[in-house]
Amino acid sequence: MGAAFRRRFIQSPDFWAGLEKLTYFVLLPSLLLTGLARADFARLEPGPIVLVLSASALFSSLLAYAVRRPAAGSDGPAFTSVFQGTVRFNTYIAVTTAAALFGSDGIAIAALGTAVLVPLVNLASTVALAHHGHHKPRGAALLRTVFFNPLILACVIGLALNLLGSIPAVGESLKAPVPSAVVQLIASVLGMLGGAALPIGLICVGAGLHGRVFARESLRPVVAAILLRFLPVPAATLGLCLALGFSGPAAVVCVVFQSLPTATSSYVFSRRLGGDAPLMAQITAAQTILSGAVLPAWILIATAVLL
Rank of each mutant, 00 (worst) to 15 (best):
G73I: 05
A64L: 01
Y267A: 09
T114P: 13
T288S: 09
G133A: 06
I93L: 11
L36V: 06
V305D: 07
K136I: 12
G47M: 03
S12L: 05
I200E: 13
G85N: 00
T86C: 09
A140M: 07
M280W: 07
A243R: 13
A236M: 14
F41W: 01
S266Q: 05
I157M: 11
H134D: 14
F214H: 05
L306S: 10
S173I: 13
P199K: 11
Q84I: 08
A277W: 03
V268S: 15
Q282V: 13
P137D: 12
N122G: 07
T96M: 04
A224T: 11
G195M: 04
A140I: 10
I107E: 11
L27Q: 03
A286K: 01
V50M: 13
L238P: 01
L123R: 11
A285F: 15
E217D: 14
V67D: 02
A197F: 00
S173V: 15
F230W: 00
R212E: 05
C254V: 07
T23D: 10
V116E: 15
D14G: 09
C254M: 15
F147W: 10
L129Y: 06
P179Y: 00
L63P: 08
A169F: 11
L228R: 08
G248E: 08
Q258D: 11
A277I: 06
S188A: 14
L101A: 00
A71K: 09
T96C: 05
L19T: 00
A55C: 07
R212M: 08
V268K: 13
L190C: 08
F230S: 00
A128P: 08
P221E: 12
V294M: 14
A39N: 04
F25Y: 15
L120V: 03
R7W: 10
V87H: 08
A94V: 05
G275V: 14
P119F: 04
P296N: 05
T237P: 11
V82M: 12
A128K: 04
F79R: 10
A57Y: 10
S266G: 07
L193E: 13
